[in-house]
Design a protein around this nucleic acid. Sequence first.
DNA 1: GAGCCTCGAGTTCC
DNA 2: CTCGAGGCTC
Length: 756
Amino acid sequence: MAEATVSDLGPEEAPGEVARLSALLTAANAAYHGQDAPIMSDAEFDRLRRRLSEIEARYPELQRADSASATVGAPPAKGFAKVAHRQRMLSLANAFSGDDVAEFDRGIRRFLGLGPEDPLAMTAEPKIDGLSLSIRYEAGHLVLAATRGDGRTGENVTENVRTVADIPQDLPGAPDILEVRGEIYMTHAEFRALNQRQAHAGQKTFANPRNAAAGSLRQLDVSITAARPLRFFAYAWGETSGPLGATQSETLARFRDMGLPTNPLTRRCETVADMLAHHATLAKDRATLGYDIDGVVYKVDDLSLQARLGLRSTTPRWAIAHKFPAEVAETTLERIEIQVGRTGALSPVARLTPVTVGGVVVSNATLHNADYIAGRDSEGAPIRDGRDIREGDWVTVYRAGDVIPKIQDVDLSRRPADARPFVFPTHCPVCGSEVVRPEGEAVARCTGELICAAQAVERLKHFVSRAAFDIEGFGAKQVEAFHALGWIAEPADIFTLAARDGAGQKTLENAAALQPLETGVAGVFEERRRALAEMMPGSGLGDTDGVEAYLSEIRSRGATPLATLHGWGKRSAENLFAAIETRRRISLARLIFALGIRHVGESSAGLLARSYGTFAAFRAAMEAARAHDGPEWAALNDIDGVGAVMAGAVVDFFHAPAARAALDRLVAHLEIEDAEAPASESPISGKTVVFTGTLETMTRAEAKAQAEGLGAKVSGSVSAKTDILVAGPGAGSKRTKAEELGIEVLSEDEWRARIG
DNA sequence: GAGCCTCGAGTTCC
DNA sequence: CTCGAGGCTC
């Protein structure tokens, strides 16, 4: 971006430039004072600050009381700093029945190549219903504590955690580096006492002990946390500089010796029957434990086996949570509404008469799709014995996994006489386009992807979401409001927001892509109306004219558009623009994910990014590719994990004129980072490896997981792109083909020698 | 072609 | 968290 010298800046450009510089400086300041890496050099920072001062000197009317030229240097006062976890904090897979647990045991044996009679000990411990926490000790001293966050990045709550009596400040005998993981919770007695104190003091009470614990830990005022009765159990670990034992149980014993609280109801089990027996005992004693548990966690005890089993994308293979049956409640289903997602999927949602389920008030529940409402599964087999769901019905509700409300059943004896089967819409309730449901698929979709406001809004929400551009302060509510106001129609508009705001929100180039506020569709735009109502009280909501009138009235008093909104001021507007500014630099993987191509989620986006390396290479290949034909198509399909459906979706995206134009507009604002090459130290990183024949010292799944951990790509078939073929006994045509192509063929022993 | 395993997409409430 | 569908293995 070329910068005009200050003396050349006309009164037209100055406001936009002030906004841009303020945003940059605020962002740099936040990055400097937060945990993030600095985003610009000190010299560049000083240069930009001087430039802002010069413009302000020239156009004094643009100077703001809280101008970044004066205030930067002060630390930002809001929220907790972010902390990247050195090792991801994972969640657990779930089991709901003894059969699921037996299947977990079988799956592990299969992966490890163990027989049904081989010993395989597991630990079984109560699953505490609290919030997970990571505590880092260096040289035996507590140096950092962080919440789980999204598993990759959490919040720095060190000072709060220091006030928790259960958690030692010092761990004598700990290795030099030890990251302890566990659960923060509150006992029933202390929860009740706290709520009484809160009520007496006229403060809000908490719905359940878990919320109380979470709310207490995340207090900006540490003295409040200190006054709250928080407790802790250690049950896992992240980075360590030395081993603490050969097994899970030994490690927990070491924790106990060091002074960390561990749960006394943890047992070592030799068989699945032992595990289920302990589950039954804990289920029976659940009410008398004095704190909430929501199941039992089983872990493979032997740490060397844990290491061999490794991790799936979000859960370890060596652990599972066996949940207790969920609590249910009865209520009436008032209405069935249809939501439209970013891919156009029409999802029915039940609006319920609010009811308490497991300590939380539930008023919505997902109904999945038309078949689910009609009482059939995707194969046409009856669910709920074929009972359908109707508006007006009495239903039992539970929270699947204690989180997502679902309808368990319908009470036909209380069905109103006038209740009629739900009729699934044939046209999109938002844009009126035709709805199609492909043969054999469960989901019905709106076909108006180019005109549907609901799809556009959902795509924008996806774009700013955590795994995509992750723009702080730019969530669903902001997207709803800004889109309804006509400020953003597509991702590129986000990056021109600051300049347009400074210049009075000039019309978008692509304003045709925006639609007026919907007024006639009951419920569908509820969320949007709520977002607007909060930001513009008394604006005569629900119609575009009312919003416009409200804004122009406030603008006439001199505020910039964003700062006119309720709850927004100059400062918060600048913070938002600063957050947007920091995300102009984006990784290729996040960009690909953010595009919202069907079938391309976070994981596949990473795969594509690593395979093509640069945006230019990726785009060129996709534009050159022809469906089911040619070298580019073959290369795309050769990526392990990419099949014809995903490949087709990606190629289609890069051939759709509207998507390409929007992409051009977007990337003009971005600086795209090339994908990192896979771990370069290992001798096989970046190589494409194929396994064939019988593997003798490890299973195929294990070999694949291990090779990928070392940065290799594992493919199923031999091609010119294959680097290494690992051939066990019984290898046939693949070996012949590899030899023809002159590809290196290794025995399993040679392979193990190669990778160390 | 069947049967895993994994991922994507949709959803709730705080 | 769950369900459905895609992709891979056998």
